[in-house]
Write a protein that binds this DNA or RNA. Structure first.
Lengths: 188, 188
DNA sequence: TAAATTTATTCTACAATGTAGAAATTGAGA
DNA sequence: TCTCAATTTCTACATTGTAGAATAAATTTA
């Protein structure tokens, strides 16, 4: 009994779907800690590599799909006077996500459609509402803090020096950042 | 007259060298805006691809070599009471370097030997001398600021959205950062 | 219902990449 | 001179992204 030859052409019944591919890709990304090759992804789905290309133009498009779906997981700050707590929770959630799905950071930053990136910025603004900053100030604070988080996430991703590099390690930076924010508010 | 067949074996006279390889790699990296393949690098040096491997164990080792040599270019802060000016100059210099040599950021962060990374931290500490921070505070300030710069550099590297993304754009973040530093000093 | 077309899939193939291992040639020390 | 080490080319392989043709089921049209 040899392996089934897997006939060519459209299969009977339900075959692949964008969703099945995205789910498999997402789970493999998390499992193996890196972006899977198209062929390995296809193997997991028990399908030929080229089948993937029926649903996605190229690998970048596939990764963008993964990114979009995964970005919905991040923490939604609640309305609260304790903006520091909310911001910290949001930051931890974002970093955890970037750690769980290595490779997405680059994809996120490369994407032409900025939808996923805006998810973070919306929630950032939501968290900082109590501070009542000007839109300029908010924008500056946002770009400072996201770039910091991305740098931290990248270090996390590249780190192979035994030392664990935990999300909790952002605490000192977070304190400095909130110090600066506090100063902005005072100087109104 | 066909192309010269390039005889096998050790050539008469001077052949390759680690330095020639590093210089070619560095210049191609700057020219083409991305890390060259071993074969293309070898072609530039008019040598077979495998010759490179006599001098470097693997591509990562080669890139580490480039990184080390290139990191020496970065700005050396002078002793000055105007620490903000010095820090800004250092930051610009670092970012320009990371922009000029795309791909080095990842290499830098991946390197087990932290020599090159320490170049920045030494100069950072030099610039902040006038502030007279505790070593804890210095460490926190450093990790905050480098991670920010790395995040910014990564965005720069990934950015393909027409918008130029200049090093001058760090100004607002820089202001927030110095605000926080100033506050640290005050609260002594 | 039969023919035509569209959709979903496999197969084959190619180019680019990193790299291993063997063969060849030169240089240097005994 | 003989041997061994250094430096190079050649060949070859695995992995990757992806293009294009062949094929078969599903769907639309006549």
């Amino acid at each position: 009994m040899t392996v089934k030859p897997k006939t060519r052409g459209r299969p009977k019944g339900q075959g692949l779907s964008k969703d099945r591919i995205l789910m498999a890709a997402t789970s493999m990304l998390k499992q193996e800690g890196k972006v899977p090759s198209i062929r390995k992804l296809a193997a997991t789905l028990e399908v030929d590599g080229m089948a993937i290309y029926h649903y996605f133009d190229n690998k970048a498009a596939l990764l963008e799909g993964v990114t979009i779906s995964v970005m919905e997981e991040i923490y939604q700050p609640v309305a609260s006077e304790n903006w520091q707590e909310q911001l910290l929770a949001l930051s931890h959630s974002y970093l955890t996500l970037l750690k769980d799905y290595p490779g997405l950071l680059t994809t996120l930053l490369t994407m032409s459609d900025f939808g996923p990136a805006e998810v973070f910025s919306e929630r950032f603004e939501q968290a900082l509402k109590p501070l009542d900053l000007s839109s300029q100030q908010l924008e500056h604070a946002l770009s400072f803090w996201v770039d910091y988080l991305h740098g931290f996430a990248l270090a996390q991703e590249c780190n192979q020096s035994g030392l664990p590099l935990d999300v909790e390690m952002i605490a000192p930076s977070f304190n400095l950042f909130t110090l600066a924010l506090g100063h902005l508010v005072d100087s109104d």
